[in-house]
Design a protein around this nucleic acid. Structure first.
Lengths: 212, 212, 212, 212
DNA sequence: AATGAATGAGACTTCATTCAT
DNA sequence: CATGAATGAAGTCTCATTCAT
């Protein structure tokens, strides 16, 4: 299993691809990618197995689709209900709280995609190309902008490092609890979701306002 | 696939088990558990397939062994070179720095175990029993002790919540970078390991000294 | 191992199934079902192992096929050379003699199927559904008709019980000798097949004309 | 798997053998011989696997034991509670009724042995030697004696054939219902056990008193 | 001689991928 | 081009039998 997607020249092809992507999305909510069979995807998309192989060279070629889905959902969320209106007057802490709340929302809703994306970013880094990097690059850009906006509150000396860490933390802190709840490191947490979100916002805040 | 280990009546049995555990440890450095076959383990342990099944009911019965290994290594590390000498006079920040450094060391060395443990704690929570919870319970205990020691510096109102979050952060912050380096969320990080460790120590510190 | 057959969408599928059924029929003449492997069936049908599993969910799914074969052969036999022309004028004894002769013929020819069917009707009654019961129900129906035809000769008080017993005896008496010849209870028999058939016809006759 | 038992020279050996025989008896009540493993027998007899192989060359060597058990039980039954007191004055029909009643009792109680014995008499006739034949030979002897006793009632011309058939019928008629109840040919029977026993006695009677 | 651990052939089953129709 | 049947490698697991201790 390796390599990539096949180009879709015709309109029908595009539809076929879309249906497969939708099928993958649906199945991913139920079980890990490794447990999903091609036959299952074909059936969910109401296609034949052969038709699947016409669009995708092999099973691995679906892995980038996971990232595609992730990306698409994230974009939609960020420009929709997940949009964070930053009020400079309200201060950094408030902005972080809003941002963490939005991140939490997204994770709760699209966690299954994030989970799969994370897993395969690690398992098969060769298959995802630059999507992942690009995604995080954008995030870092936003982080830099935000930190600049609250330049007076932020005490970190190295602005570049700060925006890197900010991105890292944002993509790391809420994941464990949001995705695995009772399992994983989150078992120690008995506090409510609200307090948890507040706590990670404070964590970010604490990092930024602590001089090194 | 499910359930447990079989009792060993003879001394030889014990050895066989040990060899299988060692074989698992070795293979786990190379690839995920799901990709390791029983035949492979047997060969690595210089045994026949049947001998494996005399010690382990089925493949799943190896999953608890991952945690066993993790636990054992962690204990050894913590009472050996990983031991953190807290100097009350040096302050909280210094203590956190040391702790993060130790955690980092452990992860760099035994990351493959932590990785597998994390994965299966999520994938097959039914198979690990209370080991996981126990492990984190102990960690939280230590956290509580530490925070008490630096009670004057810590500004969090709820001490219980603080020790929970401290444990969560400690088990969450360094993982991503230590385990997946170039892949995952850590791609954004261009800073050195040293600075990274310092940064997460600061993150913890920031959280604790920020009043809510 | 359990459950059923898979639907065949294409004509080729049907052929594949037929070939597997034929392969089973062939192998069953040589050895018990338990000793026949899937690989063996595949080879006999000139197919791959995977192709077998596309038609049959698992090995157990072949068990109903045994009954299917039995049923089919029986129907064919009964409406062909096995047809028994009852001559009311010739009397009950003659009719029974003909019927026993036909049953004997069938058993000699298709004994291997009857043997397997009997075995699995007992070993895995869950897998055969109502086929078995239905088959015997029909037999009983025929029995009732026959007994009615010779109502004056039959001395049994309870006609219902008589037709039940008749069916039971018909399906029990010849089996042992026909199927296992030298082995089983038939070792005591040194008489010829002809005399044996006559004897069981007489046994049935004796039962029916003996008043209770 | 083939061949035979090993001689038991010592007292301890004899005990070991007895325990294995008892273990086989116990397990046979639960499941078919083919499904019983050597390890299971060893455990049930509180022996090691090696010890089993010291007494029995291989698994097949247990098959004759099935017949041994059958034989032993039958002897015990026939000279105990199963003893049939024939009253010449009461007539043939009464004697047959008693005999069928006894046979039924035995089958109900030791059916699992009869079942296994029948199966392996057919599956592996090579392994049972003459035990089987001998057993039936004795039965036939008894039959001959009985028929002679009621020589005036019996109308069969060939006494030899009659005793053969009598033995065959006795070992054939009740089996199906006694051993397989709901499954097999007995599904057609809705009558009670008592009536069934009476019916097969009548069947035997009918055969004997019907002139050929 | 006894124990039970080890062997290893072989059975069932799955599924990514290919290919005849 | 589409369909879904066929392929076959690979993996898990069982258990009669052997053999080291």
């Amino acid at each position: 299993m390796s390599q990539g997607t096949k180009p879709a020249r015709q309109e029908r092809s595009r539809q076929t691809r879309d249906r497969l992507v939708a099928a993958l999305d649906t199945r991913l909510r139920e079980k890990p990618f490794a447990d999903i069979t091609i036959a299952e995807l074909a059936q969910a998309a109401d296609l034949s197995v052969g038709a699947v192989y016409r669009r995708f060279e092999n099973k691995d070629a679906f892995i980038p689709v996971i990232f595609e889905l992730y990306s698409t959902r994230l974009d939609a969320f960020m420009s929709g209900e997940g949009r964070v209106e930053v009020d400079p007057a309200a201060g950094l802490r408030s902005a972080l709280h809003k941002a963490c709340g939005a991140a939490w929302q997204f994770l709760v809703r699209h966690g299954y995609l994030v989970r799969a994306a994370h897993l395969y970013a690690r398992l098969r880094p060769d298959l995802i190309g630059d999507d992942w990097e690009e995604l995080l690059g954008q995030a870092r850009q936003s982080a830099a902008t935000l930190l600049e906006l609250f330049g007076d509150e932020v005490k970190r000396r190295d602005a570049d490092e700060a925006s890197q860490m900010f991105t890292y933390l944002m993509n790391t802190l809420p994941i464990e609890r949001a995705l695995y709840r009772e399992e994983g490191a989150a078992v120690v947490l008995t506090i409510s979701d609200e307090r948890f979100v507040a706590a990670i916002a404070d964590t970010l805040y604490g990092y930024l306002v602590t001089a090194d």
